[in-house]
């Protein structure tokens, strides 16, 4: 028998601790597949966030560090500047990147750091038990918006990809999702491009993934996929938000 699909080498054998149907495991797998395919596992350094993906160092089969909440882009900046030929990426959730770490992500983008950022947007704080995230949809119930997010009080959900797209130093920004096979294939393509850009020294590349969090949304896994399709994708439009890859010369 010939292998059609096997577990990527860039994932360890450790079973992940994510909840059933959580998108983290799926995106971890896509990142690992891309790193395998690009043949860069032995020179990759990942930066895990604070949040559900904090244990990413147990699941990725390459060098990974922890970073304080929101600071992965600062940590990645220094690693990449000290070791320019290594492949450096951050993996961050919406609390980490879109709330406490907005300063770090904006300035890493603005410096045009030649790093890859994987941004998991599941519209909720997962690890701490389902509080409102900056990306929580209007009217969406969380443990800190029990009657649904009231935009008059809590503001509107933050579109980080669009926000970053105005920054000169960001060369590639795409929003994808993982709700069905076609979208998973697209998501992987985007992730691959974001890493390829780094190899080609194009600069700051950013992939936002709309990702299911069935447990904190109070939905069954398949209903969570439906929620992304019907609700999240209405507000967070999929697609390439910025791509100046071809106009950027290698730095």
């Amino acid at each position: 028998m010939k292998a059609v699909y096997t577990k990527p080498i860039s994932l360890t054998e450790t079973a992940n601790s994510y909840c059933p149907g959580c998108g983290h495991g799926l995106v971890h797998r896509l990142v690992a597949e891309v790193i395998d395919e690009l043949g860069v596992r032995e020179r990759t350094i990942g930066i895990a966030p604070v949040g559900c993906a904090v244990f990413a160092y147990d699941y990725f089969n390459f060098d990974v560090t922890e970073a304080p909440h929101g600071r992965p882009p600062a940590v990645a900046t220094a690693i990449k500047r000290c070791l320019p030929d290594r492949i450096v990426f951050t993996y961050q959730g919406d609390g980490d990147l879109a709330s406490i770490g907005t300063n770090e992500i904006i300035h890493a983008a603005n410096r045009g750091e030649n790093i890859t950022v994987i941004f998991i947007n599941n519209a909720v704080y997962g690890m701490t038990g389902g509080q409102m995230a900056p990306t929580t949809l209007e009217g969406m119930k969380t443990t800190t918006t029990t009657k649904g997010r009231d935009v008059k009080v809590a503001g509107h959900p933050l579109r980080v990809s669009e926000l970053l797209s105005s920054i000169e130093g960001a060369v590639y920004i795409e929003r994808v999702t993982v709700i069905d096979p076609a979208n998973v294939i697209k998501a992987k393509k985007a992730i691959k491009k974001a890493f390829q850009n780094q190899i080609d020294k194009k600069g700051f590349s950013f992939v936002e993934v709309l990702s299911p969090c069935p447990i904190n949304w109070g939905l069954k896994p398949l209903d969570a996929l439906k929620f992304i399709k019907e609700k999240m994708m209405e507000y967070f439009k999929l697609g390439v938000i910025k791509d100046s890859t071809n106009s950027k010369e290698s730095k």
Partner: peptide
């Protein structure tokens, strides 16, 4: 490497990152 960081928080976390690579920071 010299970086004018966006904040003191970023600066110390850059030292964290540089130190990870074995660089005196």
């Amino acid at each position: 490497v010299f970086i004018q960081a966006e904040s003191e928080l970023a600066a110390i976390n850059m030292v964290f990152g540089a130190s990870l690579t074995g660089t005196r920071a």
